[in-house]
Design a protein around this nucleic acid. Structure first.
Lengths: 222, 222
DNA sequence: TAGATTGTTAATCGATTAACAATC
DNA sequence: TAGATTGTTAATCGATTAACAATC
């Protein structure tokens, strides 16, 4: 029901939603077991996660798929948030063009860059403005979320400018940690962390394969 | 010392390394406290993480920076891994051009795509080949890591082909979960999960600001 | 020596998993 | 009714934090 949703659960909710939407299975109902199998999660975990946002599960049949999708969409997309992105390189363009965000009430409305060749152009229908106009536009549009896809040298100073202009959440894709005041949220994405985990898994699997086949290899999924 | 390193710790090690390398502070030594403050981590956590891979800490002064960097680099970059990338769109290009990976012994050696306009071209000195040649080249070069940056419709089938060709670890950036057999490692990156956490933080901070300033807002960093 | 810092052991916290009762 | 599935409560596991002894 209406428990407080843990961070771990919150991170899985978009995964369930995505899984439900992309599964091309005609049945009207879906059970926790089915979802768990598709995702490689534990079925009790799925059941508990779902129980935390809805009470739509029916013993014997599972969840009415349409209803579950609606509940998830409603929960995850409840807030409509416009964001701007700074640094329209390859990654910046990829994020600007990504359609999946709107599902979560999240919309990148403009890009900023210093490159004159980019200014005035559009990516996925969204204009790229000169970095000079960042503060003005953020204020005018009351933007509260900023995405940083810049080389690391410029990440911190840009974050400071964004915050100065009124941004209260920063999604940082630069390979450096950004420090922000206590009243600002920040999520530092870190490719290297993911890579380290993947490479270790690979190493462990290789070792298991070379060694006797006696050991079951426990797999961390992610 | 030589404890087994937990997943949580492993994910932080690249962050420490990056922080050490980018800090422009001349001192020869660095303490856990300093690192913790720079990253917004707990200082005991930093100390414990570092203790798990080295015993170079000296009471009163901290860690010899040069030595700590060397230990981290050695631990994280111990395995040299060549990888290929499938789907040379914006995100694919961004990853192919990203220089930070080589620090971890990780190197994208080639890209694959179906678009004739891309085939034969290069990104950051790495050639883009026709997807037809994927299996042959992976076998010939004994590639064990594959990166998928494709629209979600093609993600699973491509994963299957990669595995078929000998790949044993898959880094999936498509917004869908990929299923792999037990002897293959997989890391599904999920933008929506990160976004959900960030948006909730923002919401909580806004609520705190609007409400009385009596409550301290606890911040999840990431 | 005194003080700052490390590293370890114990306690707490959070998340997952197991066991089981409820229900359609 | 019987069986499959949900949802909850208790137990386990893992990670973080706190307390403290060791050391330069």
């Amino acid at each position: 029901m209406t428990t407080v949703i843990s961070k771990a659960t919150l991170q899985r909710l978009p995964i369930y939603l995505n899984c439900l939407k992309t599964a091309d299975d005609a049945s009207e109902y879906v059970s926790a077991t089915t979802l768990a199998n598709r995702l490689g999660f534990g079925e009790v975990q799925v059941r508990k996660d779902l129980a935390s946002i809805c009470d739509a599960g029916k013993p014997k049949v599972g969840y009415l798929k349409k209803e579950l999708v609606a509940v998830l969409e409603n929960y995850l997309g409840a807030d409509m948030n416009d964001a701007v992105l700074v640094g329209v390189g390859h990654l910046g363009k990829a994020l600007m063009a990504y359609k999946g965000f709107e599902e979560y009430g999240f919309k990148i409305v403009a890009g900023f860059d210093v490159d004159p060749a980019l200014i005035g152009r559009k990516v996925a229908g969204k204009e790229i403005f000169s970095a000079d106009r960042m503060e003005t536009l953020i204020r005018r549009l009351h933007i509260r979320i900023g995405i940083i896809t810049l080389p690391k040298e410029y990440a911190q100073e840009t974050a400071d400018k964004l915050i100065q202009a009124g941004v209260r959440a920063i999604w940082n894709f630069s390979p450096t940690y950004i420090m922000v005041p206590d009243n600002v949220a920040v999520k530092n994405e870190n490719m290297a962390s993911s890579l380290a985990v993947l490479v270790r898994q690979l190493k462990e699997l290789s070792a298991a394969e070379k060694g006797s086949a006696a050991h079951k290899n426990e797999k961390e999924r992610g």
